[in-house]
């Protein structure tokens, strides 16, 4: 447990040393949600000038067991491109500073993540930008971006199988109760493996509404939360972004923004890739299985007492229940297709 005062003092001291300038904290706020990192927004005074930063600190437990360097490394490689991300400033693994590893990014000001109050026209604009950006990410050469220095480089043939094996392992390691629907999904996925990926892409891993900041013109100014990024089949991100869980009560809308067909069309135009419906069905089932694995993992953290954040309990219980219903709709013999309500 760390207090706001401790984060504030540690950040000011660390940044003063890094920048060689006087740094004081004018305001600090802990940001709710996500739970893969503890996130703090700080307003600093640096040599008389106001500056905002975001500090992401590893908690003892998180929804996703990942290395902080992965997310920071992704920011470093994406920041120079036309995909907007927060500017990475520093990463530290020294536990003496803030008890846990942490990273510091420049704050993106005057933006929000909540789409619930947008007009239909604004949602349309934001949705098209969201899928255009995802398509552009898919089109990029991950090796040219330097991602091969950060994450393993799978072959086109093994990209899907590696992801399936990873998340199957998470479920086996962390499940508190047996999971018949998830197990049925794993068997189905193994029986119906997709063809090799069209290309190898940077896969964000959690590209969804809520994980990007947009401004008042509905332009995305920062794609956040890259801690699950890896190299793989670009259809993986598209499928994840379209999971019914992110659509809440708008099952026909991609991430509560634009019709699913339109989202796919924008993505295809921007990426130059094809979304084959048969292949895509595999990735959509996989996306829900991966989500279940994450919810199960958070449930295990909460049950074991490793994490006490209420969002872990919500994910582990409520999200698992909803994701099970989504997988049922995908897999049960009488409902082989169709969009459903989360």
């Amino acid at each position: 447990m760390i207090t706001l005062d401790e984060v504030s003092t540690a950040t000011a001291g660390f940044l003063a040393e890094q920048w060689g300038k006087a740094v004081t904290v004018e305001a600090i706020e802990k940001i709710f949600g996500g739970a893969s990192r503890e996130t703090y927004r700080l307003t600093l005074n640096v040599d008389g000038k106001t500056r905002g930063v975001i500090v992401r600190r590893d908690p003892p437990s998180s929804l996703i067991d990942t290395e902080r360097e992965l997310e920071y490394g992704a920011y470093e490689r994406i920041f120079p491109t036309d995909i907007p991300v927060p500017e990475p400033l520093f990463v530290s693994n020294d536990p003496a500073i803030m008890q846990q590893p942490f990273s510091v990014m420049a704050a993106i000001n005057d933006c929000q993540t909540d789409v619930s109050l947008l007009s239909p026209e604004q949602k349309q604009q934001l949705g098209r930008h969201k899928y255009d950006l995802l398509g552009r990410l898919a089109a990029r050469d991950p090796l040219a971006l330097g991602f091969d220095e950060l994450v393993p480089v799978p072959s086109l043939e093994e990209a899907a199988a590696l992801q399936l094996a990873y998340w199957e392992g998470v479920i086996l390691d962390d499940e508190i109760h047996p999971q018949p629907i998830a197990q049925a999904a794993i068997r189905w996925l193994k029986r119906n493996m997709p063809p090799p990926a069209q290309k190898l892409s940077v896969v964000h891993g959690d590209y969804r509404t809520g994980n990007f900041l947009f401004d008042t013109d509905c332009q995305i100014q920062g794609v956040l939360d890259w801690e699950m990024c890896h190299l793989g089949d670009p259809l993986e991100d598209l499928a994840w972004s379209l999971d019914p869980l992110w659509s809440w009560n708008d099952p026909g809308l991609a991430g509560r923004l634009i019709p699913i067909d339109e989202a796919i069309s924008v993505w295809e135009s921007a990426s130059g890739l094809v979304c084959d419906p048969e292949v895509f069905r595999w990735w959509r089932v996989f996306a829900s299985l991966k989500a279940i694995a994450i919810w199960i993992s958070s449930s295990e953290d909460f049950e074991s007492g490793e994490g006490k954040d209420s969002i872990l309990a919500t994910a582990g219980w409520v999200m698992t229940e909803r994701q099970n219903r989504i997988l049922l709709e995908y897999l049960a013999p009488e409902s082989q297709s169709g969009e459903i309500e989360a």
């Binding site: 018949p180 629907i181 049925a184 919500t314 219980w317 409520v318 229940e321 909803r322 099970n324 219903r325 049922l328 897999l331 049960a332 013999p333 009488e334």
Partner: peptide, 21 residues
């Protein structure tokens, strides 16, 4: 038998729907 089991899974899911959140 597969249909029987999926039927159960559907009933199970319906029984455990969380409406409070």
């Amino acid at each position: 038998l597969q249909a029987e089991i999926w039927g159960y899974l559907r009933r199970h899911a319906a029984r455990h729907v969380i409406t409070a959140v």
